[in-house]
C-alpha cells in the first residue's frame, strides 16, 4: 500500500501542508447536482477531510467532543452547503451552537481555533446579479454571511470571502459545473499548499472571479 517515494515527498513538504476540514451540509444529497460532485472532487484530494454532517448525525445528535477534536486536527475549516434563506442548512447551525463552546472556541480560555482559516463554499439559487444592492436580494453574499464572518472573528479565525456558485439549479443544464469544480479543486490545493494570497483574498467580495490571480506559483 505504502509508496516510499510519495511518503518521502510528503515528509519533505510537511511543514508547508495545511490540513483542510470540509463540513458538508446538504439534507438531500442524493438529489444534489452541485454539492455532491463538489464533495466527491474534494474527497479525492489528498490531505482533505470531508464530513457529511447529515449522514453522520441523521438525528441531529452531534457528538461535540468528536467535532472539537476534528477542529483541532485541521488548519482550514470550510462550510460547504447550499445557501438556505441566506444562511446554512439547519444542521450547520446546530453544529455551531453545540461545537463552538465557550472556553473552546471563544472566551478567555477559548483559543482552540486561533489562526485557523475559515470560509463558506456554497451554491446559491439566484443569479449573481440578484446578490447586490439593486438586485432582489439587496445584499452581496459576503454581506449576507456577516454572522459567519463575525463567528470566525470571535473565534480568532481568519475569514476568507465565500466561494460561490450562482444560479445553481440550472448550472448543470447550462454546462457551468465543470469549470466550477476545477476552480474548487484549485482553491483547495492552493489552501493546502499555502499558495493562496490570504491578505489580498480577505479584502474581496468573493473568491471566484480573481482566483487565478490569488494563487501564487511556487
Amino acid at each position: 500500500m505504502s509508496d516510499p517515494e510519495k511518503d518521502e515527498k510528503r515528509s519533505m513538504t510537511q511543514k508547508a501542508v495545511k490540513r483542510i476540514l470540509i463540513l458538508l451540509a446538504h439534507p438531500s444529497l442524493e438529489r444534489s447536482e452541485v454539492n455532491r460532485p463538489l464533495a466527491e472532487a474534494a474527497a479525492a484530494i489528498e490531505g482533505i477531510t470531508l464530513i457529511d454532517l447529515y449522514a453522520e448525525y441523521p438525528d441531529f445528535q452531534i457528538d461535540i467532543d468528536r467535532e472539537q477534536q476534528r477542529l483541532l486536527e485541521h488548519d482550514v475549516i470550510i462550510f460547504q452547503h447550499p445557501l438556505y434563506w441566506y444562511s446554512t442548512p439547519a444542521i450547520l447551525k446546530e453544529w455551531q451552537d453545540l461545537v463552538l463552546e465557550h472556553d473552546f472556541a471563544y472566551g478567555s480560555k477559548g483559543t482552540a481555533l486561533h489562526g485557523k482559516l475559515f470560509l463558506n463554499a456554497l451554491s446559491a439559487g439566484g443569479a449573481e446579479a440578484a446578490y447586490r444592492a439593486e438586485g432582489y436580494n439587496h445584499f452581496t453574499i459576503r454581506e449576507l454571511l456577516q454572522p459567519m464572518e463575525q463567528m470566525a472573528s470571535l473565534c480568532g479565525m481568519r475569514y476568507l470571502p465565500p466561494f460561490a456558485l450562482f444560479g445553481a439549479r440550472t448550472a448543470v443544464d447550462e454546462g457551468r459545473i465543470g469549470h466550477h469544480i476545477d476552480a474548487w479543486i484549485a482553491l483547495l490545493e492552493a489552501l493546502r499548499d499555502q499558495k493562496l494570497d490570504i491578505e489580498t483574498a480577505q479584502k474581496l467580495a468573493g473568491l471566484n472571479s480573481d482566483l487565478n490571480r490569488l494563487i501564487k506559483e511556487a
Binding site: 438531500s28 438529489r31 438556505y84 439559487g125 439566484g126 440578484a130 439549479r169 440550472t170 443544464d173
Partner: peptide, 9 residues
C-alpha cells in the same frame, strides 16, 4: 427539504 423548481428564480 426538496429543491425548488428549476427555473424558480
Amino acid at each position: 427539504w426538496t429543491p425548488p423548481p428549476k427555473h424558480y428564480t
